[in-house]
Amino acid sequence: MPKILSIDGVSLAFGGLEVLSDISFDVNEGEIFAIIGPNGAGKTSTLNIINGFYRPKKGKVFFQGTDITHLQADKRAALGLGRTFQNIALYHGMSVLDNIKLGAHSHLKTGLISGLWYWGAAHKEEMALRKEIEKDIIDFLEIESIRNQSVSTLAYGLQKRVELARALAMRPKVLLMDEPVAGMNAEETEDMARFILDIKEERNITIVLIEHDMKMIMDISDRVLVLNFGYKLTQGSPREVQKHPDVIKAYLGQKKG
């Protein structure tokens, strides 16, 4: 399988604190690639490096073979890097539907003038977008009944789902998901796991997944990378990783995972 995303010798530091030390890994097209590790291991920072929100001190990031290390974050989104956040980052001033539409930003053309005018091209674009979102996202994630609500009124689990909807509207090639089931009950977790598998299988979207829920990791991921204190501990199939003595040691004394 060809690799779609490569992290090559990345280090990241905040002041004197080294958060990532010489991290390298490849993500294959079409797989679910999990990143696990104790709190503060540098998982979220790794996604932020891929997204372009953090700049590495050393090392490079490649997406579909091109070096994107110096590309601005918004351009990376346009290339096909979708993202959901550990601490939900929805826009509370907008409805569910508008939040989802926002995800499609880079695929739309309406500019300032045509937006002010609206009739014609902008209207047509909005209508087409609405149709696409209804068909491909809202139906799929079963959020028909909340589409016109304000996101701030939604339960936590639903907010996570709306975030996934927004990420799908980005038409990502790689979807970076930061703890999608954290704080969810068993039923919600199961739903989310099913959605993630469907996204991988039916839409052929590659997924990079951070999660503390070990059962889910074991169930759905193809390969697992383990980080600890900014170092790469090991990498392999879920089964291999689970048996690895260093992993067991790193997780010992830690309730989570």
């Binding site: 001033g93 539409k101 926002l102 499609a104 930003h105 500019g111 937006g115 002010l116 674009e125």
Partner: peptide, 12 residues
Amino acid sequence: NLFRTRVGRAFI
């Protein structure tokens, strides 16, 4: 009008 399009959404 602006707030029916991507420009207005981006502002918010």
